[in-house]
Design a protein around this nucleic acid. Structure first.
Lengths: 242, 242
DNA sequence: CCAATCACGATGGTATACAATTGTCAATCA
DNA sequence: TGATTGACAATTGTATACCATCGTGATTGG
């Protein structure tokens, strides 16, 4: 007799809560790459004990959002430029794959969600001057496109892998040197990707996704090259705690 | 003045021990897909408390080797034929990528390790009649090739992702229906992959790796097709506990 | 035969205590 | 001065006891 659509929004377990909330804290930049995550501090803040929190941190470690050194605790993962390049190379492969799969099998619900996101993005586009927070929000919203597409592939491993990949790349938002993004291009590419996927054109979708990542990868490469000229070598993006 | 090469082989923490040992148990088939992993039972067996064991299980869950349902506990992940196909599709992409990268940057040490593995494989090849255990051992040894190549890429995320992928695929060893492997082809393909990588020929390495996975993917597809004919639909490979 | 109920076992989570390790900082010594 | 030592504080790692909660299967009652 239970209601058919009574969705329990609260995660079933506290460790799930902890996982979700800490993950969100990291992705939203409330704790920045390199910063320590102290157990008691966090468990107090979240209102739970160390046990579920530690379980969440262990999971996040495998996902790659945090790193752990025995007896020294957890820190938010620092992604340097070299790693970022590697991640984008992989994303190029996997996003193209995912886009093709999504074009094959996207549901009406997925299409509707993509439409909704595109409308929200159009709102950003309409404005002239966006604050940094607005831009960060647009970036996060744009990321939703990829998350939806990935999810619509229905392939568990691919979903998990790409979400971890997105998570790692999201950490780069906080590297000011990377704010050279060409918003006009990004927006156009997003439109093309969504158009191709919703048109169920797998080849076009794969190509659009690949080009999208390829360009940001090229942008990154330009940064790396510029830094090489300046310093004669790659400079780490942020100081890790020694 | 501490000894420069005094390597402490024992993992620093018990949770690392638990992680390694449970992972090994799963990959070696001491617990089969679908089987439950009871916390107290395992912690007793490993001689540690529930605390580090549970943290290890949480990590393994993210890695995809075990699954967890709240209040129902952990089970070894069951990989069905459909999922296996998806995993192999991904592996095709990533293995080719990894092989190319390894060909670019493999170290002398890596080459030596590959040589050692190939010699061990040659020993298997020399024998006529191999027991099932021998075959399983040869499979594990052959997998070492890929692990070495992946490691030699030096790319953390790729390494982690592919190791998780290999782990998931290893679970299929215990599916008897998949013991149709063409050992002669597998052996030849392994030789070609190793030859290409050690020759630092990135294109040849990528192609060899892709072909290798492509063939096993085709083999799998044949099994799926045969089962479809028999049952009119895909049959799960093993019974999950409901 | 079916459904509701109950008891049991296992997991999820809290609290607590303590061990092990690391980092710090001041005292000490060359 | 500068490096080393060593005690101390802080934090993580582990163990243990206990309760809450859920799932399962048996029991009971219809």
């Amino acid at each position: 007799m239970k209601g058919p659509d009574t969705i329990d929004r609260s995660p079933a377990t506290l460790k799930q809560t902890a996982f979700d909330r800490v993950r969100a804290m990291i992705l939203r930049g409330e704790v920045r790459p390199g910063e320590p995550l102290r157990e008691r501090e966090l468990s107090d803040k979240l209102g739970l004990s160390r046990t579920p929190l530690r379980e969440a941190l262990n999971k996040l470690e495998i996902e790659g959002l945090v790193e752990n050194q025995p007896h020294r605790g957890y820190t938010v993962t620092v992604v340097d430029l070299k790693t970022a390049g590697e991640l984008l190379d992989l994303r190029m492969l996997l996003d193209a794959h995912a886009a093709a799969l999504a074009a094959d099998s996207i549901t009406e619900k997925g299409i509707a969600e993509l439409d909704a996101v595109m409308r929200r993005l159009a709102a950003f586009e309409a404005h002239e001057d966006l604050s940094l927070d607005d831009l960060a929000e647009e970036v996060r919203t744009g990321m939703r496109i990829h998350e939806i597409i990935v999810r619509e592939t229905g392939q568990r491993f691919l979903i998990d892998t790409l979400n971890a990949l997105y998570g790692r790349l999201s950490l780069l938002i906080w590297v000011d040197v990377l704010w050279i993004d060409r918003w006009d291009l990004t927006r156009a590419e997003h439109k093309e990707i969504v158009a191709a996927v919703t048109a169920r054109d797998r080849k076009r979708a794969a190509r659009a996704a690949e080009l999208h990542v390829q360009r940001s990868r090229d942008d990154l490469q330009r940064v790396v090259d510029a830094q090489s000229l300046l310093h004669g070598t790659h400079r780490p993006l942020a100081e890790g705690r020694r």
